[in-house]
């Protein structure tokens, strides 16, 4: 269980996160929604321990992240919105690097990589340098790299951005399956995706959490049962 208590973060002299409280449980896909500049990426980076919160604390199974950082990194994977690949590396070299940096055992690396190559359909590009890949492939390679260690917490910033509809469907079903014994936190603008895959929705506005509910409940906020209208209502659009 990942618990955030009163998270505060300043960046460039501005307050970005203003005392966020929530709890993420295993088996859930949580969608993080919010307008541009709401603080979604900053929150994700705080949860991924890339940023250290200036106030409050984040705990994983009761243990504070700032003191158990390295142990936490072993169960965490974070995929940024863009990039995340070393352009001159081949896909195989990238995977090898990620395995080494995640301290995977050779057999673990082989098993997981084979599984991910097949699942994410990356076999054909294994020897290709990352810079020559299409946007969709790049996204999948970063995701494969993140999933190599079978993390318990998966934080994905705009995971379906740039994917074609078929790939989006594939990813959604993969995440659904993956979330059975993990926490999956995704940030997105696409309401259709929230409806299709999220078990829970966190809506942020100006660094505050304004709504913590399920997609079904979110829809009910407006009379026409439209999730987009509900979202707009919450954020005051």
């Amino acid at each position: 269980m990942l618990v955030a208590k009163n998270i505060v973060k300043f960046l460039g002299g501005k307050i970005i996160l203003q005392g966020l409280n929530f709890c993420l449980k295993k088996g859930e896909i949580i969608a993080l929604l919010g307008p541009n500049g709401a603080g979604k990426t900053t929150l994700m980076r705080c949860l991924a321990c890339f940023y250290t919160p200036d106030g409050g604390e984040i705990t994983w199974n009761g243990k504070n992240l700032s003191s158990e950082r390295n142990a936490f990194f072993k169960v965490l994977a974070y995929v940024p919105e863009t990039g995340g690949l070393y352009p001159d590396m081949s896909v195989y070299e990238y995977m090898e690097f990620m395995a080494k940096i995640k301290h995977l055992k050779p057999q673990q690396f082989v098993d997981n990589l084979l599984y991910l190559l097949k699942t994410l359909d990356l076999e054909s590009v294994i020897n290709q340098p990352c810079k020559t890949l299409s946007k969709g492939y790049k996204k999948r390679v970063v995701l494969a790299g993140a999933l190599l260690s079978r993390p318990k917490i998966l934080i994905l910033d705009e995971p379906t951005e740039g994917l074609d509809p078929q790939q989006k469907l594939g990813l959604r079903s993969f995440l659904k399956q993956y979330s059975h014994d993990s926490i999956v936190l995704i940030s997105t603008h696409i309401m259709e995706e929230v409806e299709a895959s999220a078990d829970r929705v966190l809506v942020m506005k100006d660094g505050r959490l304004v709504c913590d509910t399920t997609p079904e409940e979110l829809k009910k906020i407006v009379p026409d049962n439209n999730i987009e209208s509900s979202f707009c209502t919450i954020i005051g659009g």
Binding site: A48, C49, F50, F73, Y78, P80, G83, L85
Partner: peptide, 15 residues
């Protein structure tokens, strides 16, 4: 910074 790999690198068990 350019390729956003810093976020990948520093969200790994590495200091």
């Amino acid at each position: 910074y350019k390729y956003n790999t810093l976020e990948i690198l520093f969200t790994q068990p590495i200091n």
